[in-house]
Design a protein around this nucleic acid. Sequence first.
DNA 1: CTTATTGCAAACGTTTTGCACGTTT
DNA 2: AAACGTGCAAAACGTTTGCAATAAG
Lengths: 160, 160
Amino acid sequence: MEKGRNFTTDFHCHTDYKTLLHKFKLILKQSGLKFTKQRELIVAELFDADKHLTSEELYQILKSNYPEIKIGIATVYRTLSLLESESFVTTLLSEKDAKKYELSLKEHHDHIICQGCGKIVEFVSQEIEELQNSIANSLGFKVQNHSMQIFGICEDCQKI
Amino acid sequence: MEKGRNFTTDFHCHTDYKTLLHKFKLILKQSGLKFTKQRELIVAELFDADKHLTSEELYQILKSNYPEIKIGIATVYRTLSLLESESFVTTLLSEKDAKKYELSLKEHHDHIICQGCGKIVEFVSQEIEELQNSIANSLGFKVQNHSMQIFGICEDCQKI
DNA sequence: CTTATTGCAAACGTTTTGCACGTTT
DNA sequence: AAACGTGCAAAACGTTTGCAATAAG
């Protein structure tokens, strides 16, 4: 953690593509599901993506990167739902647009979103995490998950 | 704040209906907008509601409580958008359903949502608020707003 | 009398579904 | 061969919009 900061924006990606694919195949096998070309490419593109993707964005990327294979948007939706239910991807709800997905490769983190340009910065604060857990416990809840977004204007957009 | 807790679930509602309505009329007048029966009833029902409402729920309540007046769902959507842009209501995005609205009568607060029964408990932690602001500032963001939801299983649902 | 607001229905963007065909196991 | 997955098109869902009629200021 950087000096003087009570949070970090520095995440470690624990997983390489080979390990990820193996984990994915394992999940499929355990549920009696099949490993298809379409599912493979969806995971591959999520791995390569450097940002959160909507189903539509992912679909367009797949069509343009792999013109030789057939893919329908329904398959993208179905696969993302599957991945979400397996906690293989993390979902970000947005005010205006569609759901956005990213692989759950990184450590858990929260998001700060610029309302000007849509830029997303990820961060995690151990202090906040602990407070959230302590609050939920006091209220008798067993925590499954949480999401926190800060909405604001980033440095660049403030200059405009 | 209760002893031994680093948060509170005890909010004060600063505003009675008369004051609320006056504030609403003022907003309308300042924007050159008109005070209509439909807008009045929407605000009245939001005031009476003891939970977050979707546009559809609010529409159904209005039709059943006031069968004598005409109301269309488009008006409910338009009015909620107006109220949202004036920060008169607070919006809660949900994973599955539509947007949910509540009047911004209470102090700012966050939500913990039971995935079993949908129950929503509101809370606020001054410590978390301060940490959020300090993180955003360090990242160069000017904070406009933030939302935090914890998802879990409430005490009752854990027994089932 | 002017302007904003309404209800309606049609349009919209996102997501889901039914189905016949294809692929994986 | 059996079971699951696929693309396609249609449907579903929440939400927005164009419009002619209506109500507020």
